[in-house]
Amino acid sequence: MRTRALAVRIIRQFIRDKRTLALLFAAPLLVLTLVHFVFNGQTVKPHIGTVQVPAPLTERLEQAGADVRSFDTAEQAEAEMRKGKLDAIVSVRGGVPSILLEGSDPSVSKAALLAIQQTVQSVAGGAGVQPAVSYMYGKESLTSFDSFGPVLIGFFSFFFVFLLAGVAFLRERTTGTLERLLATPIRRTELVAGYLSGFGLFALLQAALIAWFAVDVLGLYMEGSIWLVLLVNLLLTMTALTLGTLLSSFAGNEFQIIQFIPVVIVPQFFFSGLFNLDAMEPWLQNVSYVMPLYYGADALRGIMIRGEGLGDIWADVLVLLGFSAAFALLNVLALKKQRPI
């Protein structure tokens, strides 16, 4: 009898809370669909550039499933590689084939290397021609962690700051202190700016700690400037902070903040570059352009693996600044719901 009463009560509460109900059924489907698209898409073709190699070799490479482009000089090919358009460059020096790998993603490097080696072997008739392998970025010993690491640094900063800011701002609203605050002469812009500076300090400390721990303690591969890593991480957490406070206006309690994780955080994880975006349907790849984490991860990878400077990552920096500014502005507008002026 009492068990039944309790069960009936829980069922009633579920039916009343439409959002939780929708999430319970829809969120797993959304995440599963994402996983499906990420791992079941097109096969990734290695992008290989050739510099004055015999035609048969090029043909064999294409037959092996690679996307091959020919270049006249090594400089041209390397310039394309720096733009991220090539995974490997094959050239022949003194009769010996040499391979230059892009190197920032070990799995891509391995796939390209395998395709090239098999082709070279078959063309050379199985004789013991060992191609000379060199790397543009990274090194042979670059592990998967070195490749994921920069993305994970960005992801965790984003994730925790998003949750923290969302819950903090929600509590400010549900405990009545927000209303009390808005009964003082504070401007809505001052309120948002205050939140940004207060949380910003801790976001910066967190970013510094994560970066230091990953590089110095865990030995994560680090080619570029630690200050740039901190800058990008700070901008990423600012985006998380403004997005978290913004979405908290649409949550009634802490539980509903947690519900944003599968909707807001998980998709960003899949589009952050942790999984090869080239494997996805082209239309789906475009979704990554609205994900703040995509830009943060792209910049962090550039700095840490390819040693890129501000000149190379400025576009990512600007986009992150734009996201933060847009979310902050929307926060100021959303506060109108609490106080009309």
Partner: peptide
């Protein structure tokens, strides 16, 4: 000066 119905304190 304003005092809300609930104690809005930190």
């Amino acid at each position: 000066g304003y005092m809300a119905q609930s104690d809005a304190l930190y």
